[in-house]
Design a protein around this nucleic acid. Structure first.
Length: 583
RNA sequence: GCCCCGAUAGCUCAGUCGGAUAGAGCGUCCGCCUCCUAAGCGGAAGGUCAGAGGUUCGAAUCCUCUUCGGGGCGCCA
């Protein structure tokens, strides 16, 4: 709808420009907006105000000239100049009736557009270390990323979703050692378990599984050295972990250590994949960090940097001269001990994404990662890739509440609420909905009690209920022996109530909302809209009877309800929320 | 010290290329509730948009400074 009105104004502007003898010199985008106050009509443009300065004419005069050029249209009832020079357009009721028809014709495609023009987007999100179950923070990343992917697809982007698996590096080694120690304990060895190893029960479960499937493969005969290490009072507990890792590799041998690591990794990863799948999150690819090394991507990236003379050896380590690209300090890519840093994998990974032909690398990261955005961008630029091909959206933290009471969590002790627990408690729908209810760069207070409530205070319930209410109406209609005549569109001209007009206007905004939400990477706009639409529908339902005796009016009202159901369905589906017919 | 995010009604928050009289939900107050199964419905009161300057025809929105709050700054991942 907006696009149609927009075109009319653009046409007028083209005439106007031709008459005044200028063409592309000025910004001639009408920047059509919805009015806030219905007194100002339905749409408004401030183009006359914006042109006024450049043209040296008063805005109202420009507006008057422009107004004469607006083509006649069945969609526009009235055009007025108001205030300092706004052009206000009031639409005909026919325009809204047509839009309702379009909703039902387009069905699940209603609202989709091609503003993305097929841009190839690699959306990376969650990418939690595979060292334990996902917790409620990861849930927010998952819900946000998945909704964003849906929004981008609906607006014509070619989206590829990816989860980066950090399956190399120290954290995996620590997990492996944790599993190994639990495994040895299971087999009766009396060993102390370090406080900073992975504490969760899932470590014991993996150990149990290893023992069941692989038996005593990882048993060691002489464990005095290990025991001694564990009971030594080491001041530096991190150092102890490193020593333990070295000891484990030495005692088991690299091959068995790797086998154990693989077991641990696959257990955790399987759990994460199942968890996300149940949550409606399906990355197309699980990209292994390990494969970066194997595939030579790290070497290619380093070589590229070398060619650009962007590497420097100091103190035995290899540094990337990030400062030359605006970073605050240079960054190590290869440590003095020869190990490549996490940062090296990271720029290699992003470089490799570009090699795969993606236009936009869209990363969803935790707010604690903001520091490395500049680094990775610097890396891309140093490798002659455009810095703005990387876009990062940071997700702030989640705090759980039960009513007024804060739920205490501590990642360190392994006492945190998992995503699975949350989903089990409040359900997938409420979780998906609540997670994207606030802007990603705001802290989120997640109220478990509210999310579970079956009352209108609960926004997800409220919106789903609007959908169910339509279904209920249709059932009732059948019971009463009525039916919708589909032969030709019912006479929507019967929809003359104010509440009906409000609802029609709200429905017609949906495509604009999708674009706004996609462009701003802001699913909460869609959510906010759905709440408003539901409110409009509920008020309408409360004020007016749909299943009236008059067949014409009844058909028109049912059609309006069906349109509402369609838009609610389309919107909720993009957010990963189901649309029940019964509640 | 440097960097990022935030501050809007009693509470939780919308307000996204600057636009006309700043919105919603909850709570409060006042009515209503024999009605398409719907745990309710309608209305009202409620604001120094943290503060101060600036840009602009026009600022909650952009810029600068200040105050307060949250987070981040490793040859960790």
């Amino acid at each position: 709808m907006r696009a149609q009105i927009d075109n009319l104004l653009k046409e007028a502007l083209a005439h106007f420009a031709a008459e005044r003898g200028f063409t592309d010199a000025y910004d001639l985008d009408p920047r059509l907006e919805r009015t806030r106050d219905p007194k100002h009509g339905d749409f408004t443009s401030n183009i006359a105000l914006r042109l006024s300065k450049d043209l040296g004419n008063p805005p109202r005069e420009i507006a008057t000239t422009l107004l004469a050029f607006i083509p006649k249209s069945a969609l526009i009832a009235n055009v007025q100049i108001a205030g300092p020079g706004f052009i206000n357009l009031t639409l005909t009721s026919k325009a809204y009736q047509r839009e309702l028809t379009k909703i039902l014709e387009a069905g699940s495609m209603y609202g989709c557009s091609n503003i993305g023009k097929g841009q190839r987007v690699l959306l990376e999100y969650v990418s939690a270390n595979p060292t334990g179950p996902l917790h409620v923070g990861h849930g927010r990343h998952a819900a946000y990323g998945a909704s964003l992917a849906n929004l981008l697809r609906a607006t014509g982007h070619d989206v590829h979703e990816e989860y980066y698996v950090n399956d190399a590096g120290r954290q995996m080694d620590i997990l492996t050692v944790s599993v190994w120690l639990r495994y040895l304990q299971l087999l009766g060895l009396d060993l102390r378990f370090p406080a900073n190893a992975y504490q969760g029960d899932y470590v014991r479960e993996i150990a149990q599984k290893v023992q069941t499937t692989l038996g005593e493969k990882f048993v060691i005969t002489d464990h005095t050295g290990l025991s001694k290490l564990l009971h030594a009072d080491s001041a530096d507990s991190e150092k102890l972990l490193d020593l333990l890792i070295a000891k484990a590799k030495e005692m088991l041998g690299q091959e068995k250590f790797s086998a154990l690591l693989k077991e641990a990794l696959s257990s955790v990863l399987t759990d994460i994949k199942d968890d996300l799948a149940e949550f409606g999150v399906h990355p197309q690819r699980w990209y292994s960090e390990h494969s970066l090394t194997e595939g030579g991507a790290i070497d290619r990236a380093l070589k590229r940097l070398e060619e650009q003379k962007m590497l420097d050896v100091r103190d035995g380590a290899t540094w990337f001269k990030a400062t030359e690209y605006g970073d605050e300090k240079d960054r190590v890519v290869v440590r003095a001990n020869g190990a490549k840093t996490y940062f090296a994998s990271d720029i290699a990974y992003h470089f490799e994404k570009r090699e795969r032909g993606f236009d936009l690398l869209l990363d969803v990261l935790g707010a604690d990662h903001h520091g490395y955005v500049a680094r990775v961008r610097a890396g891309l630029e140093a490798m002659s890739e455009p810095g703005d091909s990387l876009e990062v959206r940071l997700v702030q933290f989640v705090t759980l509440y039960r009513g007024r009471e804060k739920v205490q969590m501590s990642t360190r002790s392994g006492e945190y609420v998992t995503l699975r627990q949350l989903r089990t408690e409040v359900g997938n729908d409420a979780a998906r909905f609540f997670y994207v209810s606030r802007s990603n760069d705001q802290h989120l207070d997640f109220d478990l009690d509210l999310a579970k409530a079956r009352s209108n205070d609960n926004p997800v319930y409220y919106v789903q209920y609007a959908h169910a209410r339509v279904a209920s109406l249709l059932r009732k209609m059948e019971e009463e022996g009525f039916r919708v005549e589909h032969s030709d569109m019912p006479e929507l001209t019967c929809l003359t109530e104010e509440a009906e007009h409000t609802l029609l206007v709200s429905l017609s905004r949906y495509p604009e909302v999708l674009q706004l939400a996609a462009v701003n990477r802001a699913p909460q706009h869609l959510l906010q809209y759905l709440r408003g639409l539901s409110a409009n529908f509920h008020s309408y339902y409360n004020a007016h009877r749909v299943l009236v005796e008059d067949a014409k009016l009844r058909n028109a009202r049912i059609t309006l309800a069906l349109g509402t159901r369609q838009v609610l369905h389309n919107g909720l589906t993009l957010l990963g929320v189901t649309t029940p017919d019964n509640m």
